[in-house]
Amino acid sequence: MSDAPFTPVLAGYAAGSEQPAPVTPKNVPYHGGPTNPSAGALKARFGDAIVRVDVVWGETTVIVDRARVNEIVRWLHDDPQQRYDYCSDITAVEFRDLERPIEVVWHLRSIPFRRFLRLKTLLPKGQPLAVPSVYDIYRGADWLERECYDMFGIRFEGHPDLRRLLMWEQYKEGFPLRKDFPMRGRFSRSEQLRQALAQNPETRYSMEELSIAEAFEDLPADMRQRLGGGEKVGE
């Protein structure tokens, strides 16, 4: 350990000392109230790519154009006046109204400025579900994006290793958190049991582990074909 004096990173340090200490929000209005200043900055910087800004229960939501998500998040992360360096959560929302687009939600925090911002983008039904990945900006987005893909089938373009995370790789029933997925599963109990019993334990090796072992070439031909042929996950 070096002898240099240690200074911890304090949250809110970039906002300056004149910034009042945060307090518990009280009597938060349903709509309206103070807007996160980053929303205005985003509008000034990106113009058309910002579809709408909502403030619901004191939280600012910025709905952005799908194609420019990565660019916008990178700017929020890098700009010295924003510095959203912490990605709290990435998730998606599908509504019971099946016509309504699926929303992908990013919850970002700026530790230097003590700000919280919700970014959203809309994925209309009937089109391929894909959004740009923010993995290259936040490493913490790795599993969050994989989980979102696993549960909703939304492809995060640019994610280096987008595979199932909570469900197993041979899971065939679809995407559990979609509204057209029944709570008890798409297959009957007997079919689920049959598939579980018919599982070949060999197939639990993922491609990644096989490439580590460099043993792929030594596998039996049929297994090589099955794994190498890229059995489609889900769907």
Partner: peptide
């Protein structure tokens, strides 16, 4: 070394 605590911030 990051003094970030939701209770404080």
């Amino acid at each position: 070394g990051v003094a970030y605590d939701v209770r404080k911030d």
